[in-house]
């Protein structure tokens, strides 16, 4: 294993491990050599300038993009080994381990809130009554009680994003990815979404969050990864990254956020 975290429970494989990951678009490298791992119950924030490869990293981990090299392991098992993907069937099995929350929510506009949340579990054979109950209680947790029959277009951006979080949680993923979940929202709506994410962290949900919300990353994450130019140039506990960054690039980037 390329690295350790102070939060890793001893003896168990990290839920996600990435080793030497590479991704290039038409020979233009976006991810050059990314290695890190996430243990159960940890929140890892990924920060860095635009174009540094943060989103691409999440998109590779969730199989939305095809990595060109390196390994991706879930629960200690290879999903990608040396840039070679496991067979489709196995990838589908790995897909059940993670959920994803997108910048643009990507709710299904023609479905009610309830159907947005319930359909995927139902397609996987969940019990109808059970999943309905779970959806209702998830909505309650998201502060969206009574919105079951609303359509996404009737909701604010912040509400839509919380429905998207509920939709991801309904499948009971082991790890949840957030790809700039508040970048499409104004500050007020951002607050609503960060609040439920904070709550998830308190419930020990394993999360990887690509974000520009530095105060959230500082307060909630166990570990912060700073990316620049396709590399992880610095990583450590939030106290170190935000309080005493070692790299010039990190200092320069974070100085833009000082208010």
């Amino acid at each position: 294993m390329s690295e350790k975290t102070e939060h890793a429970p001893s003896g168990s494989a990290p839920i996600l491990e990435i080793r030497g990951l590479q991704k290039a678009y038409d020979r233009v490298p976006v991810l050059k050599d990314i290695s890190f791992s996430v243990s159960k119950g940890n929140v890892v924030s990924v920060i860095g300038p635009s174009g540094s490869g943060k989103s691409t990293l999440l998109r590779c981990a969730s199989f939305l993009e095809t990595a060109t090299g390196g390994d991706i392991l879930y629960d200690g098992q290879y999903a990608v080994k040396g840039g070679v993907y496991a067979p489709k069937k196995e990838l589908n099995r790995f897909r059940r381990l993670f959920g994803m929350v997108f910048q643009n929510f990507n709710l299904f506009p023609h479905y009610s809130v309830l159907k947005n949340i319930c359909e995927a579990p139902l397609l996987r054979g969940a019990d109808k009554e059970e999943i309905r109950e779970r959806a209702v209680s998830l909505l309650k947790k998201m502060g969206l009680e009574g919105k079951e029959n609303a359509y996404p277009c009737q909701l604010s951006g912040g509400q839509q994003q919380r429905v998207a979080i509920a939709r991801a949680l309904a499948l009971e993923p082991e790890i949840l990815y957030f790809d700039e979940p508040t970048s499409a929202l104004d500050p007020e709506l951002t607050g609503e979404v960060l609040k439920v994410m904070r709550q998830l962290a308190e419930d020990h949900m394993t999360m990887v969050v690509v974000t520009h919300e530095m105060s959230f990353a500082h307060a909630v994450s166990h570990r912060v990864i700073f990316m620049d130019g396709g590399y992880i140039t610095e990583e450590g506990p939030p106290e170190q990254i935000f309080g005493n960054p070692q790299q010039e690039r990190t200092k320069k980037f974070l100085s833009n956020y000082q208010k």
């Binding site: 997108f102 990507n106 299904f108 023609h110 397609l123």
Partner: peptide
């Protein structure tokens, strides 16, 4: 139909056929 609809469906475990019939076609 925005690419994000396909991506959301993929992450949620919809098969290609399910994505087309349930998510794309109605829209």
């Amino acid at each position: 139909i925005p690419k994000g609809q396909y991506e959301a469906a993929s992450v949620l475990g919809y098969s290609r056929l399910q994505t087309f019939m349930r998510i794309v076609l109605p829209q």
